[in-house]
Design a protein around this nucleic acid. Structure first.
Lengths: 165, 165
DNA sequence: GTAACTGCTTGCAATCTAGGATCGGTAGAT
DNA sequence: ATCTACCGATCCTAGATTGCAAGCAGTTAC
């Protein structure tokens, strides 16, 4: 983990996030607003194992992608938040979603958010990132227009109606 | 390999390319113009092992990211080419490079191409993708302005001068 | 003829991953 | 007070993946 293979930025990004789970955890925190261990564990679309989730959260913590805080409502509960570093992955995830929706057999309903992100473009991403900063970093809300996350959630729920999966 | 965990486009992209080597192979073919097995093996910045390279090329072939053709100059030589599907990863790799250059300790020289790609934006990516289609898919050249790949190569070589690694 | 080069395979040890049961502690309802 | 559900993990085991070094048969240049 400590030694790096090369100083290429693509390689280093891959070393940080290039496994099958890390980005999915970030995706769930980002788009699904999962903030607790159990939420990430049980509401995971892909069914992550608890030891893998614990390991990934630990790595993401050490690498500065997420931070951890105690939940005042429950002494054993922890709240995980995305860092600025992770929030800046939004354009990357938007492109991944767009590419996947076009070139893999992704289901229509699960691609709804990806399409919205793609059509929205950089301006929409920026709005969404600002909302994440409010929810995860405690930034002051900018409050312009309809919420980007609300738009995505509404579109997703609309697509879910009548369609199983 | 065959069963998929979910129909989410991000997950499916990750299942196809979410390991530590596949994207590096594509990167080398794309930006380093490595087209033969030995080139990919020995000129790799990160030092990929031959069995891993063989395995990844096989998977990338099966998944339709690359194609393989005989090299007329040598009966045992193979030429690997990127497919349209892989060429459309250019924006993704551009974002990965940009993110990595900003948030990891990537070396300055190796980040030169990433910066150029970021500053160039979608128009530059499109030009580069068109050039890839010429070199890999046999498309007709569009020939407008200075070549995007030549610009990146020139910037990289300039940065290399006087700086070891 | 021989030496270097071609894409690729094999054997092996070490590491990483996945699934499931389990842990000690907490909280709310009865 | 006691039962039940929940909390973030951890442990164990088996299986898959990885990395390294060596080796392969066929091809080409000298």
């Amino acid at each position: 983990m400590s030694e790096q293979r090369s100083g290429c930025p693509i390689n280093l990004t891959l070393e940080a996030l290039g496994d099958k789970w890390s980005l999915l955890v970030i995706r769930d925190m980002m788009f699904g607003n999962r903030r607790h261990f159990r939420e990430l564990l049980t509401k995971s679309e892909e069914g992550i194992a608890s030891n893998i989730l614990a390991d990934r959260l630990k790595r993401l913590l050490e690498a500065g992608f997420v931070s951890r805080a105690d939940d005042p409502s429950h002494k054993q509960k922890a709240i995980y938040s995305l860092s600025e570093k992770a929030i800046q992955l939004v354009p990357l995830l938007a492109h991944m979603g767009a590419w996947g929706a076009r070139h893999t057999d992704a289901t229509h309903t699960l691609s709804v958010r990806a399409h919205l992100l793609e059509q929205g473009g950089p301006a929409f991403w920026d709005a969404f990132m600002d909302e994440l900063r409010v929810g995860h970093l405690g930034a002051a809300p900018k409050g312009t227009g309809p919420s980007a996350s609300a738009q995505m959630q509404a579109a997703y729920e609309k697509a879910m109606k009548g369609v199983k999966q």
